[in-house]
Design a protein around this nucleic acid. Structure first.
Length: 622
RNA sequence: CGGGGUGUAGCUUAGCCUGGUAGAGCGCCUGGUUUGGGACCAGGAGGUCGCAGGUUCGAAUCCUGUCGCCCCGACCA
């Protein structure tokens, strides 16, 4: 046994020896006398907290700190303590395995990027605000020989030039690359611990294909790898159709871990299998066979002094229900105004304006609206002939749902005047119908018409089919077998590893602490030694720990000179899946106790069977 | 960046309104009694009250500025 050399330890060691027979060992390795990775709690570093830090709002954030996984350095900046790092490493390893299984190849790109890689790119505008600058001058004022740098928020702008230079033939396609590493984004508002941090760990991947079919295959392979990853780490993640946002690209899925604290709404129906995030969600509110109502009468103006809201027009004396009103909104797309018509009861989903193809879209100001339509917001409408300067508009777009209104009420484009008996097809000047409204829970899903449900979720992964947006920009392509040149068809993919860590806690905890899924637990077995000063108990604990380790578990031995209550509380808090309690009381009965975290009952197992049973228990999980 | 809040010991905080020697619990150290779900007793260490100005005989407390942090909004893995 390795403990024999303990006489060489200092005075403190001898003092501790009095209460802990493991105390002379630097770590588990020495008392087993062979190579082992198990840790002794008394020698490890797990600073648990009884109370929550004041700045932690949500359960997972509190538990991250209380269980000793992380400590905050500053807003959105966290140190991963040993326990947190162990989970991160397990998540990374599983992610790596699934990515490699899908055919992707690991590499590593710099975190510091020369700014010119971004300055010419398609995303410099929208992405610039969240990038940290890393000028070599350090003060933002660079000298003539000091280039500008940024800290990488993602790596499309780096990998595309690389692949452009290194891959020139169709014979080398397809290729997918990935890396797992730190990303930097100067979030406007970091919050919820690791959930939205300034520095975070992400797996990012990029696929390059010869044509669109290949890109779809790469995309689907990646989707399968994601599903395998989330399954293996014990997360209940769902994939939803998503908006492509600033990334651009043609289609995309988000992977969500459902949780109340998520900042995304998803709409879904389990029976039909439809699921989408709110920005993208569609509904079958307007049936395919919908027939518009015939016009009910002639257009008629009526005075509405001071009435500028949907709600005011609903109230007496007007009494026009919101779903019988038309709401006309004006936006500026790439500098030119356009209008959107919705039902009064609907909300615009701004993300859906992306389908109109503008680069930059923002709401128009009243000053911009009045010269074009003829009135201020509150009395706007899209009735043919009422607009002051219709040629200034790019067009008037309408949500499909306004066809359900039939004859309704809308602004007359004169302040304080509205029109009634407005018939969609007869009276409105619509350039194009589209899907612009925000879908609500309860509406029929677009597949089978079943009611959509809504819940919140945490976005932990995102996959995009990018197309040729980036390759076109820098002319990155290859030569085919007919000596013709084509652009790479790209995809890009990301999994927030550190965010997933916290989302797992959010998804799996109780009042006592974290409940780790087996595959990612920092330690899978905790041998809770209640009497570390008792050589017989310590010997039993050591054998059980060794058996668990043989079976493939990561083992922690709680050998601290603490009272049992403290050890049990800490054990529950850090969420180790399997706890084995070894104490004098049990030993007298000839048993040790086995308890699965999250299960209510404690199992007593006979001492002489304990090693075999623990080994079997571990193997059943691995 | 807009709105709101907050800063007192390692952590959680009282005191601030109504200025007058900075208090508690947890944790930590020492001794003792305990020992199967966050023990008890006794003793002890630890705070220039975020920072800088101002008002005042006197400021944790009132005023101004500034910085950090937290929450709500837009954005994201």
């Amino acid at each position: 046994m390795g403990g024999r050399s303990c006489g060489e330890e200092g005075q403190i060691e001898r003092r501790r020896l009095a209460t802990n027979v493991f105390a002379c060992c630097h770590r588990g390795a020495s008392f087993l006398g062979c190579l082992t990775l198990m840790q002794l709690w008394s020698r490890y570093f797990i600073p648990t907290l009884k109370e929550s830090p004041a700045d932690a709002e949500i359960a997972s954030h509190r538990l991250l700190v209380r269980a000793g996984l992380v400590r905050k350095l500053g807003g959105g900046l966290y140190t991963y303590l040993p326990l947190g790092l162990r989970v991160m490493q397990k998540l990374s390893r599983i992610c790596r395995e699934e990515m490699e299984r899908s055919g992707a190849i690991e590499l590593q790109m710099p975190h510091i990027h020369p700014a010119e890689f971004w300055a010419d790119g398609p995303r410099w505008g929208p992405v610039r605000e969240i990038m940290f600058r890393a000028d070599s001058a350090g003060d933002g004022k660079r000298g003539p020989r000091e280039p500008e740098f940024v800290l990488g928020p993602t790596h499309e702008e780096v990998i595309t030039p690389l692949v452009k230079h290194e891959i020139t033939s169709y014979r080398d396609l397809p290729k997918s690359f990935f890396q797992i590493g730190t990303k930097f984004r100067n979030e406007i508002r970091p919050r919820y611990g690791l959930m939205r941090a300034r520095e975070f760990v992400m797996m990012d991947a990029y696929s390059f294909d010869a044509d669109d079919d290949g890109a779809v295959r790469s995309y689907l392979a990646m989707k399968a790898a994601y599903e395998a990853f989330f399954r293996r780490i014990g997360a209940e993640a769902v994939s939803v159709e998503a908006d492509t946002g600033v990334m651009g690209g043609s289609f995309s899925h988000e992977f969500m871990i459902p949780a109340e604290v998520g900042d995304d709404d998803l709409l879904y129906n389990e029976e039909s299998g439809y699921s989408a995030n709110r920005e993208k969600a569609r509904s079958a509110l307007v049936p395919a066979d919908h027939v518009d109502l015939p016009a009910a009468g002639a257009l008629e103006e009526f005075p509405t002094p001071g009435i500028v809201t949907i709600a005011a027009l609903e109230a007496p004396p007007y009494g026009v229900p919101a779903d019988r009103q038309f709401k006309t909104l004006v936006y500026i797309g790439d500098g030119r105004p356009f209008a959107i018509v919705l039902r009064g009861c609907d909300e615009l989903e701004e993300a859906k304006l992306g389908s109109l193809g503008f680069g930059l879209v923002r709401p128009a100001t009243p000053e911009e609206i009045e010269p074009v339509l003829g009135a201020k917001p509150g009395s706007l409408g899209a009735v043919r002939g009422t607009l002051r300067n219709p040629s200034a508009l790019v067009g008037i777009y309408a949500d499909h749902a306004i066809r359900l209104v039939g004859n309704g009420t809308t602004g007359a484009n004169r302040d304080g005047v509205h029109l009634r008996n407005v018939n969609v097809m007869r009276d409105l000047e619509i350039k194009e119908f589209g899907d612009f409204r925000r879908v609500r829970a309860g509406e029929p899903d677009p597949i089978g018409g079943r009611p959509l449900k809504m819940r919140r979720g945490i976005e932990v992964g995102h996959i995009f089919k990018l197309g040729t947006k980036y390759s076109e920009r820098i002319d990155a392509g290859y030569t085919d077998d007919k000596k013709e040149r084509h652009l790479f068809v790209m995809g890009c993919y990301g999994i927030g590893i550190s965010r997933t860590l916290q989302a797992l806690i959010e998804q799996s905890h109780d009042n006592d602490g974290i409940i780790w899924p087996w595959a990612v637990a920092p330690f899978q077995v905790l041998v809770c030694l209640l009497d570390p000063q008792d050589p017989q108990a310590a010997e039993i604990a050591r054998r059980i720990a060794a058996a668990a380790e043989r079976a493939g578990a990561d083992v922690l031995i709680d050998d601290r000179a603490e009272r049992p209550g403290v050890k049990f509380k800490d054990s529950d808090l850090i969420g180790v899946p399997l706890r084995v309690t070894v104490g004098g009381r049990g030993i007298k009965e000839g048993v040790v106790e086995m308890k699965w975290r999250g299960a209510p009952e404690t199992l007593k197992i006979a001492l002489d069977e304990s090693e075999a049973l623990i080994e079997a228990a571990v193997r059943s999980k691995a």
